[in-house]
Design a protein around this nucleic acid. Structure first.
Lengths: 188, 188
DNA sequence: ATGACTGTACCATCCGGTCGGTTAAGTTCA
DNA sequence: TGAACTTAACCGACCGGATGGTACAGTCAT
């Protein structure tokens, strides 16, 4: 089974298309994510993109789905019995994607701008996460505040809002980690 | 000098147009904010809108400017010598706009989707806010986390993400208030 | 040959922006 | 006074480019 230049089998082209969509979104903004621009970035034609995703909505839905899946997979790599596991996962996800052209948020923005309904899967996922976060602690408000701060970090990065500098940001992450540790202690 | 049925004096129509833009953004999503849809909502024609704002960019810039101004005015109503004044202002801004179809965030989203550069005034404003927040406390990471959590609340509401219920949300706001109070104590 | 996949030409729609009216009020001046 | 003119505010037809989507012929590995 050697390399095939065409007919990339299964979801290979599909994945490349999604990656192209993320690249375009990051580089030119959510509003510039068009089928043509994605096709150009992915190195194929508009028809090729539409063969893999029958509509733009489907493309964006696929994009969101891929990122949610990646998100879930990252969680499964975390130690099983750790307290505040969900919260920790959210935080480390952000830290790990530092500087990477690859963030969930831009997909969210692109989706929300074109059709708010596309966010439904994300909402469902987050509902589960919140439930888990709350079940993992006995100080619900504190846990929620940590979760909100993490969300804040996401959007701050996404919109390139000022963040007080790299040094402070590092200390913020540190502090969030200790906050989560303290939540754990309270639970015991 | 009697009432004039036409020519609404000064910026009356302009303000109505901005309000219409916010209404459309909230009801149909940021992507549906077009000059025509705004015109329809404001009760005038496309030409009328473009008479008041010579381009869509100008409209969105005006929208953001209006909201930043409102934001600043809210701050000026807060007691002068209160500690952590800026942080408190951000929090109370959110609480006050609870349930109102009138939030800064949607303007942000609409602007970001069409042209990220439009967010520059917001970035400038926020840079000042962060500086002030940091100068008002001696526990910079804690203050920043509170600020981030507040931003998180904003986007949570904007994207209609799950929030754990009204009860928890109320307790979160309470807890944020005491967090800010504690920042104040540390400063003394 | 066949079926998975690609590329291109094309269409219909939408959207931002232009432009030549139009209406009503105010101003000038004989 | 009132006719001529100016100005502010707005209208709506239209244009050009972008965009989502379709149709269809072609290509390539098996």
């Amino acid at each position: 089974m050697h390399e095939r230049p065409h007919s990339e089998v299964g979801g290979n082209a599909s994945r490349r298309i999604l990656e192209a969509a993320r690249t375009v979104a990051m580089r030119e903004g959510a509003g510039k994510v068009t089928i043509e621009s994605v096709a150009r970035e992915a190195g194929l034609s508009k028809g090729g993109v539409l063969y893999n995703y029958p509509s733009k909505k489907a493309l964006l839905a696929g994009l969101l789905d891929q990122m949610l899946t990646a998100h879930r997979e990252l969680f499964e790599r975390l130690p099983e019995n750790q307290s505040s596991r969900t919260l920790r996962g959210h935080l480390e996800t952000i830290v790990q994607t530092e500087g990477v052209d690859d963030d969930l948020s831009m997909a969210i923005l692109a989706a929300a701008a074109s059709d708010p309904q596309l966010l439904d899967p994300l909402r469902k996922e987050l509902t589960g996460d919140i439930e888990r976060i709350l079940s993992e602690t006995q100080d619900a408000p504190a846990a929620m505040i940590a979760a909100l701060a993490i969300q804040g970090l996401r959007f701050q990065r996404l919109l390139k809002l000022p963040d007080g500098g790299a040094d402070l940001k590092r200390r913020v992450v540190e502090r969030l980690r200790t906050m989560i540790d303290e939540l754990e202690e309270k639970t015991h």
